[in-house]
Amino acid sequence: MPRASRPRGAAALAAAALALTLTGCAPTADQPGGSTSPSEPTGAAATGELGEADLTVLAAASLTEAFDALAGQFEQANPGVEVTVSYGGSGALATQVLEGAPADVFASAAEPPMQQVVDAGLVSAPEAFATNTLELVVPAGNPAGVTGLANLADPDLRIALCDPSVPCGAASVELLANEDVTGAPDTLESDVKAVLAKVSLGEVDAALVYRTDVLAGGDAVDGIEVPAAAGVVNRYPIAALTESPAPGAAAAFVAFVTGDAGRETLAAYGFGAP
């Protein structure tokens, strides 16, 4: 008797799992509903002129703290709009856009990843909104006594850099080449926040990150300014995706980031003006 009930239980479980999977997919599939609402007149007092919209922003990892703040400010100024920011290496995000990730805005840490998206015709007219430069970062208290870029050539030190395939890595390669330093990295991380984490944990003695990341790292890390870093400037472009289901809100978000209020917030997090 119990033998008969067991398969039935298993089938029910499988069916439940299937149902879960299906319902899990449904809301995202139905999301384009948001595309009509911005143009629709909305009677609700709680909703702003942009109406109800769910914005998905893909932003470079180095923008994490600044865009968390900007998203919050934008939501406050536009009731009914919800902003979700997904952070990652700019190259990985560009690939996601090319593969058709459902997103509305893309903010890259350098021009090449944005150019890929432009070439594919997925955005038009990206706008520079910030600049950033590199800085040496060491664990708080600088246990290895790092003094400058030359230390990055020391094989006895544990050193983390960004992989050259991401903007912070490309900038690091350029900076080290400019200064004739042959870096001896122990790891090449896929985004700048992964590098910063290795420093905060004390797992590496020194690393190159953006100056904004040194600020974001807080008490766990110390920054060492590198004069030559001023010669390698990353320009951050932002653009609304042409296939955004909420073009009005996407354009408004881009305008907000590139506008005065956005620039002020970005400056507070250490970004330079474009």
């Binding site: 983390a160 990295p185 122990d186 790891t187 090449l188 991380e189 896929s190 290795k198």
Partner: peptide, 11 residues
């Protein structure tokens, strides 16, 4: 990638 990092030829 969390514990060993990512260096060509080593990790």
């Amino acid at each position: 990638i969390t514990f060993a990092g990512s260096l060509p030829g080593t990790t």
